[in-house]
Simulated scan of single mutants.
Amino acid sequence: MCGRTACTLAPEEIRRACRYLDRQGRHRTPQWRDGDQNKYAPSYNKSPQSNSPVLVSQRHFQKEPFFKGQRCVVLADGFYEWQRSKTEIQPYFIYFPQDVNKVKNDPEELVDSEVWNGWRLLTIAGLFDCWKSPVGGEPLYSYTIITVEASKAMKGIHDRMPAVLDGEDKIRRWLDFGEIKAQEAFKLIHPIEAICLHPVSSIVNNSRNNVPERIKPIEPDSAEKSNRSGNSKMMLNWLAKGSPKKAEPAPSPTVKTEMQSFKRSSASLMQSWLQKPGGSMAKRPRSNRDSEIP
């Protein structure tokens, strides 16, 4: 896995998309650490050098020192991988299957409550570290993504894949370093089949290209045209509406699944996500400056 992802939600949207139930069954929404939301900029093309949203346990900030290799969850709309053959290299976008009964086609419907009815974020197991300069200054946080052998859904694209945590319980257990020790937590790390993927344009090859077309499905040049994943069609419909959540980003500081039920019901979600009302393409993801906080 090359480490290239897309994460196009604004900071407030990321909070809502990560809403969870605590042990008492109460709904909770994660909080950004002070100032961190201003360091993050939504992007269709995040390289390893950019700032990305990561979930960590609050307990890490309630004691010293930080230990190396602390567990975290890396958030993304999806990630990119390149299929190599003798004649060409084809990029793919890989993401979670989407529930068409939950995901709203109209992004305007997403700002009415704390409940998130938008695109389901991919949740990837990772490890993070914190470095503090001996001469002072702001701590530097970094993370690494854990990879595993590719699942059957991914093997045709690459021989490795990120360790995806599918479900709220797996995320909670991975982050709970106090009660879930490393040996038990590592049982959560394995390939999964519940992913979707579709081919995308080669403009993704240049990390400076931060445009919606990066994740838009393209028509393969073969008989596979008729087999486009239903979830890729869902993403098209989602992108076509052109959410106000997808405007100019703030400056940054420094497969196809075999779940047939998705194939029939998600024909136009990605298209609505990519385009503004009236059919024009949304140019850039929205920044924190444009966020609408419910």
Rank of each mutant, 00 (worst) to 15 (best):
R23F: 08
P162N: 05
R214N: 15
T144Q: 09
Y80V: 03
I203A: 11
R286L: 07
E219Y: 07
W32M: 04
A163M: 06
E179R: 09
P97L: 02
N205W: 07
D99V: 07
K46C: 08
F66Q: 02
I89Q: 04
P277W: 09
M161G: 12
S226W: 02
R172A: 14
S243W: 01
P251D: 07
A194W: 05
F61C: 10
D169Y: 00
L165P: 12
V135L: 13
M1S: 11
D290T: 14
V73L: 01
N231G: 13
G242R: 01
C2N: 12
T29I: 14
C196A: 15
W82S: 05
W82P: 00
E81S: 08
F61S: 12
D166F: 06
G69D: 13
T144F: 03
P48Y: 04
V100Y: 01
V73A: 02
C7W: 02
Y20M: 13
D77L: 04
K181Q: 12
F262M: 02
A247Y: 03
R4P: 05
H60V: 13
P48I: 08
I14D: 13
R214F: 03
V111N: 09
Y40G: 14
R15H: 01
I192P: 15
Q90F: 07
R59Q: 13
L236W: 12
W119K: 06
K68T: 12
K246T: 15
E12K: 06
D99R: 03
S142W: 00
R15V: 15
V54Y: 00
R26C: 14
L127S: 09
D112Q: 12
S151I: 02
Q90G: 07
A41N: 08
T254N: 12
T147C: 10
V73C: 03
E224Y: 05
A153V: 12
S272Y: 10
A185Q: 06
A163T: 08
S232F: 10
D36Q: 13
N117T: 13
V115I: 14
N210K: 02
P65W: 00
A185S: 15
